[in-house]
Design a protein around this nucleic acid. Structure first.
Lengths: 217, 217, 217, 217
DNA sequence: CATGAATGAGCCTTCATTCAT
DNA sequence: CATGAATGAAGGCTCATTCAT
């Protein structure tokens, strides 16, 4: 666990190799989802991928490396989605967007994250556990937080906000947001029609200055 | 995984047996913490517990049953702590407590939860995954939510709050609270001196009526 | 298998002990029938018998000893039945019985044997295997053969028979008889309404002198 | 026991694999003969075969599957021998064969069956028990019976026989024959010099019409 | 490079048997 | 004598990984 190589063994240069690697990853994802981590053995992966075990070990030094690759793939895809969703909020533009809209956008971005390969995501997060991939998750959270912090520093936002440490606030928001979205019982909560609105409220209120309610205008 | 017996196999009647069971549970906890779930084999548990494998299987039908027992123990202890902490807030008392204090109490209660065997708690939640223990976690969350909802309905609280569905709000709070406390990167966040205060703020603001800031009184 | 004690450990003198032994034997029989030899463990036997394992080992030196005891019980009961059934044929009586009737009686005796605890009998014979109890089975076959030989030597019988070695003929008959009764597919054959009659015929013809058919009289 | 896979797991494609499978089967046969079914563990088999347990499980899903394979092998070989031996009796030929010769041939065929791996045969039949392989044994018996019935229907045979149901008679003969050959104490009986002749007699008499003895010619 | 046969440590579990209470 | 907790050898089986072809 400590001294094990977890990175891919060699970058596949030929096209055929690329196909092989892809097949292995897909097979692993399927098996993970269908039968869980424990039953996802290298032999089974190879078989499902239509490849020999030997080939598998040509590209991955060990079983966990495959899972890690999958994890990274997923993380990158999710980050991409998140960053794309958030992009608008950061673009310089002529007219102002009210804070509440910005927050709504942020929340939408986090929510969008859940749509990326949800099954795989779930199994990876819950069964494999992110403990083993702390770095990745850290990076993930870090980048999200930075993005949010940047958004919070946007002049348009600042105007409506009370004075606070953008970094810290971003952490709170991201953390709370993910908690709500990925915690136990999240399914039920998210399904509630009031959910999105209330989550916006939660965060907006937190950011706004005291004594200046939303509807006060 | 689905039809496996997970309950304890037979209750230890003699005192000696009780000691054995206890040793097994402790050994398992230690191994889980030190080496993770995957390396915690029944043989190792038995060895560490200074007991034979046979004894282990006399009280637990299989490895997971031990982990489940541990999980239940922990969950019960945590619930106990939480409920004890929250108890005051629910007691009828002569003078009013301001909402912010109530929230602070709530948060304190959730935080207190983290002090119960934190290492074991982490490994159990993260590596073993609560997916397999949905019922327990559900119960846990349910009870916490109910408690919070009850607190929110307290006349003293109502006075300072905007009109909202106590149950829903409780869900949001509990969920967000746990997210902040148990999510990735929680350690760092919690360590921040501003943390507790800000979390209070987050929730208080959410509950208070618009246009009525905290310091406005 | 070779140096293992197989006899009962000590004769139970007290009444209570006798009851215990009986309970153990019954429990074993039930378990053998219901779950087969492999799943019939001493612990299970003890439990089913409502006795502690320790007590079990008070009366039997090891597991197989119980099975052996059961086997012996059964063998003795079957022999008893066989001998009782055959008894008449051997009694000196005033009037002659025709050979065919004698044979019919013999066959009836062998058939009667099947009615003694058929389930236990089957499991003991098929799963446990009589290889391990050769002596008993030998004795069994021996006695049956002797009995039949004695019957064949009866003057009444001799009259209708061709000259042959009674011992050898008895062996053939007993052996063939048991083959028909306990071999594979016996069930189907025995169920056939013609069966008993034809079996009589088979043997009678064998015993009668050439050229003197049954119906010639 | 009921839902266990008993068929071979995967067919050996390479020559090396074929050798392995063969070694496993042989080792199992040896162990079965020398130490009995209960002591024939997969580990021992692998060891004796000079192969790793893993290899064993690559070709057989579990221990019993090996035994079953052995059983099938044996059954097929025996059937082959039986059918070959009986073949002549069925061939259309110019001159008649007397019934007694036909029966003699039949008995010879059944006896020949005993020469095929007698030790393995014995252990498989007696200790493992044919109960678990009912289908195979059934097929075995079925085919033998059919063959005999066919022989009985041969015009040459019919001429010397009384009228009877060929199928039923075949069942009786086969069953009795196997009983005599495979029952307890068969060894001794078969060793007797009179045995074969008498067995012929037993069956011939049974088939011939009443009142027409053998020597009547 | 691909293949798939082979490996063997190690896991989970059972069970006959002993022995302190 | 009875009890039942404890033992630990042994069995069945899996699976990550290697290596000859």
């Amino acid at each position: 666990m400590s001294d094990k190589e977890l990175g891919p063994r060699k970058a596949p240069r030929q096209k055929r190799a690329q196909v092989t690697v892809e097949a292995i990853l897909q097979a692993t994802a399927q098996l993970l989802i269908q039968h869980g981590y424990r039953k996802t053995s290298t032999n089974r992966i190879a078989q499902r991928a239509g490849v020999s075990v030997g080939s598998l070990y040509q590209y991955f030094p060990n079983r966990d490396a495959i899972v890690v690759a999958l994890f990274e793939d997923l993380a990158h895809k999710q980050m991409q989605v998140f960053e794309d969703s958030v992009a608008d909020l950061l673009e310089p533009r002529g007219r102002e967007i009210p804070l509440s809209d910005a927050v709504r956008g942020l929340i939408g971005a986090i929510l969008a994250t859940r749509t990326v390969e949800p099954d795989l995501s779930r199994i990876l997060l819950e069964e494999v556990g992110w403990t083993e991939h702390v770095n990745l998750v850290d990076e993930w959270t870090q980048r999200a937080t930075t993005l949010v912090a940047t958004a919070l520093r946007h002049p348009d936002a600042q105007e409506e906000m009370r004075a606070l440490d953008a970094d810290f606030a971003a952490s709170m928001i991201v953390q709370a947001g993910f908690g709500v979205l990925y915690g136990p019982r999240s399914e039920a909560l998210i399904a509630d029609p009031r959910f999105e609105e209330e989550l916006c409220l939660l965060i907006t209120c937190y950011l706004k200055p005291r004594g200046a309610g939303e509807g006060t205008s």
